[in-house]
Design a binder for these strands. Structure first.
Lengths: 157, 157
DNA sequence: GATCTAATTTGCAATTTGTGCTAACAAGAA
DNA sequence: TTCTTGTTAGCACAAATTGCAAATTAGATC
């Protein structure tokens, strides 16, 4: 998503006010590549602004999504994650720890489905599921067997 | 997923009992390509077996997923959908009505991510987001503008 | 077929994640 | 400084799912 300054201007141009709460969240989200949950952001925000409301965090995230400044990612039924990366990208998810990493996927745009000729396709999302290096290490140490095959999709609103 | 008969055998081989509730759910899921929610299945099951518990539906779906007989699909934060299709396939989602269609995607298996060299990749999921023909019609009739760009991933456990 | 035991089903409480509502408050225009 | 309108906080509420325990039953054993 855009810089906090640009977002402030964007907000004003939409007739929205630039409050300290929003400015803080702009900062926290800007170039955040951790795909945080609303709760995680709330925790970070609370550290800097005690008293900020979780409700405000949700509200601001929804506004940013509405204005196209971030996307939602839902993995495995857990809480929604937020992704401020506006570049064309996809995701890898660690099936052990749930960590999400942004990745490039060459050829993704060229994919097309067979069996949906009656759909007008707008977007493609690719999600890889795997095990990250740190989980792989602890897995080896614990002598665990490889994971069951699992299939992971991701989506955004 | 497998036939109700095969699932019964599978259950017994796992030391699990084959109850009437489970048999009914086996039938309802078998070759079901509607990606139903737990509630939807519960409604169908209730029609044939009044008194069956929603809790049992959830439990059985979780068991089937554990045994690899179906996968979970989460779209846009709504309730989890269940997919008994065990073939290698992907999904198209209508961003208007939420309908999910199974599709084949040639080349999906050849995709690989740049920026996740430290991950051991196990699975790839592709989700297309678009508008289905019936929604496209009503959209044209209502003179609606094209949808905002949205990005949709899908995942499974 | 009767008996027995462990798995299962139910129903309800509890949890998790997120939204609706509204009174108090504050941004930014005039 | 004043005023208007959007915003915040906080709590109640909703939706989806799981935890728990008492009552029930599948299926093994005799």
């Amino acid at each position: 998503m855009q810089s906090p300054t640009a977002l402030a201007a964007l907000y004003r141009s939409h007739g929205r006010k630039v409050t300290p709460q929003r400015q803080l969240l702009f900062q926290l989200m800007h170039e955040n590549d951790q795909h945080p949950t609303a709760e995680a952001l709330f925790a970070e925000a609370s550290a800097q602004m005690p008293g900020i409301s979780l409700r405000t965090v949700y509200q601001t995230l929804n506004e940013l999504a509405e204005m196209g400044e971030l996307q939602f990612i839902d993995i495995g039924g857990g809480p929604t994650r937020f992704d401020p990366n506006l570049d064309d990208h996809h995701h890898v998810v660690c099936s052990d720890c749930g960590h999400i990493r942004d990745v490039q996927v060459s050829g993704a745009a060229a994919l097309h489905p067979s069996g949906a000729e009656d759909f007008v396709i707008n977007e493609v999302g690719v999600v890889f599921q795997g095990v990250c290096s740190s989980c792989e290490k602890s897995r080896a140490k614990a002598g665990k067997s490889p994971l069951n095959k699992t299939f992971t999709h991701v989506y955004q609103n």
